[in-house]
């Protein structure tokens, strides 16, 4: 590549970087300001004196909810990923009459607006006595996560040569054995995509969280974050620090798994 075009590329990238950094800059600089310094007039300026007051307060208030979010996200992500992966295997490799129709019906569930099921969901959880608990939310996120996890794994496994599976079947291996011995070991990129997707979505989900849990000791972090703001004075430094704290786990997932993310996307979900 010529020098000029290299330079040009960098310039473009830097311009877009600026665009991407604007809100993040505001977020971070506000979170380090003491309360008196927070105002819309001064939003572009760096804090005169960096203060950790916001972070300390946000952490004190949010740490129990941080724990709740982990209790919610980890099982929901893992279970929906595992079920989705075995579903994906069945739907890509063991086709039977109507399996494509079933897949389409499953997939549709991914697109529904949660509003259209909100009320029955609440009444259902109430009837099985899980309303107001994290476990109710876990169940919701597993079920509503199944379409996307199934989709990703189905597309991912579609790339695996069918002969490989057939050969294993001829050797007398059953469904579960094939899944466990042949597919599972090569599924890492697929799992990465699913985990990133599910983890972020469940972690950041607000509508179900706020309607299903009302006891603050059981609320996940998104709800607690909104609760940081009273109806009178909003301490924006605490709010923004809280937002950063709340985003840390998802960022960590991105950083740790980012290497496999593109590979997984390539192998899986991008297929039309």
């Amino acid at each position: 590549m010529s020098r000029v075009s290299k330079l040009f590329t960098y310039i473009l990238l830097i311009i877009f970087t600026l665009f991407f950094l604007i809100p993040i800059y505001v977020l971070i600089s506000t979170s380090f300001k003491p309360l008196q310094e927070v105002s819309l007039e001064k939003m572009w300026f760096l804090p005169l004196k960096a203060s950790f007051q916001g972070f300390v307060k946000a952490f004190q208030k949010l740490s129990p909810n941080l724990k709740n979010s982990f209790i919610l996200v980890i099982p929901a992500t893992i279970i929906s990923a595992l079920v989705g992966s075995i579903n994906g295997y069945v739907l890509s490799k063991i086709k039977f009459r109507g399996s494509n129709l079933l897949f389409t019906l499953i997939l549709f569930g991914m697109f529904i607006p949660y509003q259209s099921v909100l009320f029955p969901v609440i009444r259902f959880l109430q009837s099985i006595n899980l309303y107001g608990s994290i476990w109710g939310l876990v169940i919701l996120h597993i079920i509503y996560g199944l379409p996307i996890t199934t989709l990703i794994f189905r597309n991912y496994y579609a790339e695996v040569p069918t002969e490989l599976i057939e050969a294993a079947h001829i050797d007398g291996a059953g469904i579960f054995k094939v899944y466990w011995k042949v597919l599972f070991p090569i599924s890492l990129p697929g799992f990465v995509v699913v985990i990133i997707w599910q983890f972020t979505n469940i972690w950041n989900e607000f509508l179900f969280a706020v309607t299903v849990t009302s006891d603050p000791t059981k609320q996940p972090i998104t709800v607690a974050l909104v609760n940081l703001a009273g109806s009178k004075v909003v301490e924006w430094n605490v709010q923004m620090a809280g937002a950063l704290l709340a985003a840390l786990p998802t960022l960590l997932v991105y950083v740790l798994l980012g290497k496999y993310f593109l590979r997984g996307l390539l192998a899986g979900s991008v297929k039309g």
Binding site: I86, L105, G109, I112, F119, I143, P147, H169, I175
Partner: peptide
């Protein structure tokens, strides 16, 4: 047999989505 088993593997997903997606939409 494999196909049958495959269907049974899908069954929990189908039932839960049947209720949580289609049933609940019907309710709404």
């Amino acid at each position: 047999r494999r196909r049958l088993l495959g269907f049974f593997i899908l069954l929990p997903t189908l039932i839960s989505l049947g209720i949580f997606v289609y049933g609940f939409i019907g309710w709404t």
